[in-house]
């Protein structure tokens, strides 16, 4: 029996969509110690070029309209806007100490943590106008929002605390002790999770008042945490232990631990299901296959920290040639 051409094509497309997507595209790896961005071809895992920045960039955030990738250069006191598809520089803007940054889910606010200057700045995301500066001691580090954008939660690495800022009233809602040297923050199922780097656990925090309700042991120096795109797994990087731990997102029970040497820090998820993990002290990115536990490495610049994957990105020739 001959299969009609149209049906065959439809079957082929169906088969293709069922397979994991190949990870083509462009990866932005921010080298905080090298003051640059490594542009990596996601297919070949090769660095194609390096964009020089001013002093010490750390983190990035995609604008709500998806048209700009914002990269904060802390010591350079500068925010850089890149085209996430081509890595072309769109504009530069003076911003004091932009260490960690993130847009609110409703796209109205951009919160910028100044870790070195002990300040949390709330910007109007559309106009980039500073709405309010909160001088907060000490070392405002990571952040995440409530899903309704009513509050932002910021870990205070130097004072073992977390602060919740009411974004409607632009006031501090509460400050509470959450464990030693808190770093990564993640809103999850009505709770705030914070990785306490001075310990081996992730603290589960009540967003209403900041009290710790539970501690999930993951590994020494629990530093940063991310939820998978399907919201089924939470990934925790343990800086001192040199491991990445997966947690069941519904129960928070540990599933598996992966050895990722070299100070694992930030994670980004590729369409093929692999995790891209920056290894701060190894000048490399690990591309981890969570099914096998094996990882490939990508050579980048000194102290890679934040990263962004742009599956449809192709570096502009002028950028890639650098």
């Amino acid at each position: 029996m001959q299969i009609p051409r149209a049906v065959g094509l439809a079957l082929w497309l169906l088969l293709l969509s069922a397979l994991p997507a190949a990870a083509s595209g462009l990866a932005f790896i921010i080298n905080s110690g090298g003051a640059s961005i490594s542009l990596v071809d996601m297919s070949s895992l090769k660095e194609m070029g390096r964009i020089p920045l001013l002093r010490e960039p750390h983190h990035c955030a995609l604008s709500p309209d998806g048209k700009s990738l914002l990269v904060g250069d802390t010591v350079g006191n500068e925010m850089l806007f890149f085209d996430p598809l081509t890595a072309a520089l769109q504009k530069r803007m003076p911003v004091p100490d932009p260490y960690q940054l993130g847009f609110s889910p409703n796209g109205k606010f951009l919160v910028v943590n100044g870790l070195a200057r002990n300040q949390v700045d709330v910007y109007n995301a559309a106009s980039m106008q500073l709405l309010k500066r909160f001088p907060i001691a000490s070392m405002p580090s990571h952040l995440d929002y409530a899903p309704d954008s009513s509050r932002v939660f910021v870990s205070l690495q130097g004072s073992d605390s977390m602060v919740a800022i009411d974004l409607n009233r632009l006031t501090v809602a509460w400050t509470a002790k959450v464990g030693k040297t808190p770093a990564g923050v993640l809103w999850h199922n009505g709770k705030v999770l914070v990785a306490d780097m001075g310990t081996d656990y992730v603290a589960v925090v009540d967003p209403a008042d900041g009290h710790v309700t539970e501690r999930i042991h993951t590994g020494k120096g629990a530093h940063n945490l991310f939820v998978s795109p399907d919201h089924k797994v939470i990934w925790v990087n343990n800086r001192v232990g040199g491991t990445t731990t997966s947690l069941d997102a519904s129960t928070l029970a540990p599933i598996r631990s992966y050895a990722i040497a070299g100070g694992p820090d930030d994670i980004a998820f590729a369409p093929d299901g692999k995790l891209w993990i920056t290894r701060r002290f190894a000048e490399k990115v690990a591309v981890l296959d969570p099914k096998t536990g094996e990882y490939e490495t990508v050579d980048v610049g000194r102290s890679p920290h934040g990263l962004f994957l742009s599956p449809k990105g192709i570096a502009a020739a002028s950028v890639a040639a650098r």
Binding site: G33, R239, V240, G262, G263, F281, E283, R302
Partner: peptide, 13 residues
């Protein structure tokens, strides 16, 4: 740099 990274990872941290 890698030597400094090793020092950081295995001794200082």
């Amino acid at each position: 740099d890698l030597a400094a990274g090793w020092l950081q990872e295995h001794l200082l941290l």
